[in-house]
Nucleic acid binder design. Structure first.
Lengths: 336, 336
DNA sequence: GCCATCTTTGCAACCGATTGCATGAAATTA
DNA sequence: TAATTTCATGCAATCGGTTGCAAAGATGGC
């Protein structure tokens, strides 16, 4: 409650009987400063609960130590990106915090073309994290043109050079297929996100590889696509059940779609997993609480967030472009 | 791609043949500057795509125009606060953006006591937005002691003076009860969040008022509490069904709990809404997609977010403490 | 035609840090 | 003992804005 009188390094300097520069160097642990002086200054700072002024430091160092998490306005329909984004934000935040970076969240209007300038060239943020979204390619293009540092969740476009982190989608698809095969299911269905998404293509590729290796035929009629929203999951499932009623297992590209698909299956009077085994993707927190609890391919979301943060900072500091993929694992529950 | 050469107001000043101060005033639309000069400077700024330097401005004005959204690390179990928080963040973000404020998201470790200093006294943020969380009272105390501006979602503690926005919980409880009564249900149950939460008490109060007015008895055996997590919703429902098997309707304090409660009801071999009608709270996006689609009390979440943002900024500028409540409405779907 | 007033602009200090360079004292070497 | 390094510190410029005050020119009243 008492107004603090020691607010700036100049105040500390006065108390310690040294100059501003010495205080600044001491607090930044510069080797130029003698140990006793450092110790005195530090204890003074601690004693008076000194907090350095961030805007001044940012102006002086010409960097904001702030990263923008780019997302879009939420819409009526619920899509995997939202919940997934929420969970990954926790990992990003902790990764950033451990390097003393702040996390700014910006909701970008799809038609806005100037957002990147407004955040980057004003010095408000040093870099961006892009999640999956319908406008991602446009955003990537804007940032590349601007020369602004960024990292994306998801597979980079071929021939473009920028940082990315993604799950190991091929292995994910393979694990799902292998598990369903090991359950002795005969007619396996695939419900994917949009077919133009590289993630989806990779998952399908892994899935088909595993089928081939097991000597199974690929039946195009058993492949459906949605847009990652839960409604689209239910609809794709219904189409699949109509086209191919004998389907007895399905690999769905997201937990949210999978949960909706299970509802659709029940609505048709069939049982999960008795009649149709269902396997999801992501292992969102809700997967453990669905009915029945969802067997799924876990993406290690907190880890993914942490790596996104770390690799972006790495890039800021060294210019090193990294493209890493995070391992996935099969989580066995009740639905398959 | 080309390095921009016009980066500072000094550059603009040179081009326009005026001084830095004039440019600064012109861009801030100061009445001190002549119209033609203003026009010339503005067109110059537009032409060169000038973006003002935020850290410098913040240092000079001694305010960051940034608000912190305080949340906690996500945990294994999924709680309403998370999804609710996600949805409200969209509203907050748009409210802040329209006043040219930035949104910083900070995940506070429950044992951390210095977070507020680290953000407020460093000048990184001008104020805080607190959502419901187990540590909320501790956070409120910390911020009050620090004299830092903040606003909370939820009912303020009696006798404490700070800004808040909350849903109209009494009316919410009343609407739920009136609807269940109008359905001719006889044995109404109540599953609340933690009983020490004022929100929960108000919802219960509204609910009981409506029962009383309808000439119904309040049966304490039909009242259960959880902690807003989905698991707790399922457990409370099971306890309720065991204690009072004749229950034919239940008002659950959150959508997430309600959805879990519906699963619990089905597990006991009973039907929703045939045997037991269920009504939720919040109208999260998932409510429309549950099985069956959930009848619920809608909190206008985007509006709530916008008002949180606006009232906090209002407080920063005028010191006016506001405590507002946002109207709620009944959303009819299939579960009741 | 002179003085007071109003409008528009510039000067220079300031916000609170960081950092290149100069300097003085202490330690080392010859 | 004198010359040379090394170590620790301070001076002052700088980052890019905002703003109080002075001043110059335009306008108007009498």
């Amino acid at each position: 409650m008492t107004k603090r009188s020691v607010r700036t390094i100049a105040d500390i300097a006065r108390l310690a009987g040294v100059s501003k520069s010495t205080v600044s160097r001491a607090l930044n642990d510069s080797p130029l400063i003698g140990e006793e002086t450092k110790a005195k200054i530090r204890s003074l700072a601690r004693e008076h609960n000194f907090q350095i002024n961030a805007p001044a430091r940012r102006l002086s160092m010409r960097q904001s130590r702030t990263i923008a998490f780019v997302t879009h306005a939420y819409h009526k329909d619920f899509s995997v990106a939202d919940l997934f984004g929420l969970e990954i934000m926790g990992g990003i935040s902790s990764g950033l915090a451990s390097r003393e970076y702040d996390l700014l969240v910006i909701h970008v209007d799809p038609n806005d073309t100037k957002w990147a300038h407004q955040y980057y060239e004003t010095g408000r943020v040093d870099g961006f994290i892009l999640m999956t979204s319908t406008r991602k390619q446009a955003h990537v293009k804007a940032l590349l043109e601007l020369g602004a540092p960024f990292i994306t969740w998801g597979i980079p476009q071929p021939k473009q050079k920028y940082c990315s982190v993604t799950g190991d989608n091929v292995t994910g698809g393979r694990l799902a297929a292998e598990h369903l095969i090991s359950l002795d299911r005969q007619r396996l269905g695939f419900i994917g996100g949009p077919s133009y998404e590289l993630e989806v293509q990779h998952r399908l590729a892994g899935y088909e590889e595993a089928l081939n290796e097991a000597g199974r035929e690929i039946d195009q009629a058993l492949i459906e696509h949605g847009d990652f929203s839960n409604t689209s999951g239910a609809e794709a499932m219904k189409r699949l059940l109509k086209k191919a009623p004998q389907v007895d297992a399905v690999f769905v590209n997201s937990d949210l779609m999978a949960i909706a698909a299970m509802d659709a299956i029940r609505e048709e009077g069939r049982h999960v997993p008795g009649d149709v085994a269902v396997i999801g993707y992501d292992d969102l927190s809700i997967a453990a609480h669905s009915n029945p609890p969802l067997t799924t391919i876990r993406q290690n979301i907190p880890l993914a967030g942490k790596v996104l943060a770390q690799n972006l900072i790495e890039y800021l500091q060294t210019g090193m472009v990294t493209n890493v993929s995070i391992p996935v694992e099969l989580i066995l529950r009740k639905s398959a």
